[in-house]
Design a protein around this nucleic acid. Structure first.
Lengths: 203, 203, 203, 203
DNA sequence: AATGAATGAGTCTTCATTCAT
DNA sequence: GATGAATGAAGACTCATTCAT
């Protein structure tokens, strides 16, 4: 049993690995199931034994990757009590994660976007999960009086979009050479923006 | 000749209109050339007379739409001498434009992204053009001493990404009901962020 | 136009001819669309231009063939005023038609039967049409007093089934060598059966 | 051993039961071996232990069912010395059997027919066996002088086909509500048909 | 310029069968 | 005997593109 399960897991995992490489490299539509099968050293039938359809495979991959990233960021934030510092940690960790895994970045920020209507709902959930992470920090900071009240949802999405675009630029142009180098600029942009917006008590 | 040209232009335009509707609605890969032909009340052959391939059509559409948007924003900014006020105008105008044209927003921010490798270069150019618009304002403001020196490229991309994400959220969830309503929050976020970031002489 | 239509017709007809040969020869499920395409000297895409699916092609073929047969029999019956004589003509004509076209017989009596749920409704309509032909003769003969009243529907279906089985036997065993030779026996079986059944005033 | 054999038999039987239900319901081609395995609460491997192939399973099912029916009819006829009465008993028993087992009727009269070339030979044997049953009665009746000499083979097949068609109509339309109700009409149709055909000494 | 029938390579998916455990 | 993961050949269908008219 254990062995079978292990083998099965490894096969399933091999397929997911291959799927990440292939989908991130060529995009959802331009990737043939045969390519994923070949890349995972499986037969097409074997692949279909583990995933009922191309769409389901892509969805599973999306879930797997986004949850792993979310977990990584959440864990990095866990120890820090200060909400603003937590936000900084989240930002740095995301930049690190994407900086280390180009494929992850391509998958989540590029290929998942235009993959088709079927994936919009899931992608929105993923986006919401990350935005929630940020919004949570902001809300807590507001509650603590560290930040003035403001529309934390919009702010969270704006931050999130800002990060993504920096990552996209890095993917496209290779700048900055080390993605993490964007951290201080982004942090200051975010931080003093939020504080500043509060300073004058703008709604 | 004039008539022919005009007719031809109108035919070409009809195709582009239909392409916008169809590509934005169903995505690049899921759109069949037949659909565009049908929607533009042309034949497939007629369509191929004006555009040599599906890819060329999509590219032409991308150019057309992004340039129109760029023109609209540039024109709105033209009269304003103050660079920071110009930036605000740009922001509001973009939100207005997308708010009025869902399809435009979907095309540029969703469907163009995952459409395939072939379009990445062009999309980067488009992104760069918009980021340049913002970076131009920032640079001028810095030159005038209205803003402290900072990495205006990163800031410009971050702004740009923030706006896009707000638009994406609006596309997905319908919030805020009027996209333009996000303007004040975004503006303050940007403005005081940049100023604030400068205040402490960021590293 | 005329030429195009003619060519189109001929192409469509070529496909139907090939479909008859292939489906009747190998059965619905065991026939690949490629085979029909090859047999009709068309490309697969060309075939799909004229028929939207394998199922639709089979259905069209079924309609075409059954209606042609129905028309042939109806026309043969047209001139005869006596209903019983008309019934005999129908019987002979059906035997002739099937005897001349093995493929027709195989298609309608064998391959259409087990082709799948999707075809049951249509097949029932076809069966009903033929049974109606017979029932019509019987009903008129009863109205004229040439036959005693009886359950003409059941009788019609029984006749119809009897004919089919004789044809099936001929297909399978080659007996009788000339299918038409079964005519006198069948006719007498039918005729005196119906008459005789009436004699005793059956319930 | 005995236990094993019994268990084995019951397993085999479970598979056959499931096969009947599935094949009769969905047809030969549209039935996947997995479905049969699932329906019989076995694994695919287990199924293949008892039957070497899908085809062999279907063939075994066909044999099993047709022989059971044949046995049932034969046994019902056994006690009756009069050949014509025996024929009537056969007719009634067949109608009863099919009326009680829709699946049996569907299997033998519908799904077995278009299942493919591979089954034609077996189906012909089955048909011949039933026709022989009828032909036997007719021949004996002729020998006894109860019926005039006639082509008993053709008559037998015609009867047989007539019955089948009535059953098919019942399967398709639900008429007559109780299949057995068709008995008197069919019997009279057959009986007086054969007699009548003989009366005038038509060849 | 326009049409739309035709092409054929390419795609996803199914499924009978095998075999290591 | 039983299991179910794996195989891979085969099949229905799509669609960008071409071209005779």
């Amino acid at each position: 049993m254990a062995k079978t399960q292990e083998r099965s897991r490894s096969r399933r995992q091999r397929v997911l690995d291959a799927a990440l490489a292939t989908f991130a490299e060529r995009g959802y539509s331009d990737t043939a199931i045969d390519e994923v099968a070949r890349a995972s050293e499986t037969s097409k039938g074997g692949l279909y034994f583990h995933f009922p359809s191309k769409q389901a495979l892509f969805l599973a991959l999306l879930d797997e990757m986004s949850q792993a990233l979310l977990r990584r960021v959440t864990e990095a934030m866990a120890a820090e009590p200060d909400p603003i510092a937590r936000g900084e940690i989240a930002l740095r960790e995301v930049l690190r994660a994407f900086g280390e895994h180009r494929l992850l970045a391509r998958l989540l920020l590029v290929e998942a976007v235009g993959a088709g209507r079927e994936f919009h709902a899931r992608l929105n959930e993923i986006n919401a999960a990350f935005a929630d992470l940020i919004a949570g920090c902001l809300d807590e900071a507001v509650a603590r009086g560290q930040l003035p009240p403001h529309d934390t949802r919009i702010a969270a999405y704006a931050w999130y979009g800002a990060i993504n675009q920096i990552v996209l630029r890095w993917l496209a142009t290779g700048e900055p050479a080390r993605l993490e180098d964007a951290f201080p600029t982004l942090r200051d942009l975010f931080l003093y923006g939020v504080r500043g917006a509060a300073k004058d008590g703008r709604s």
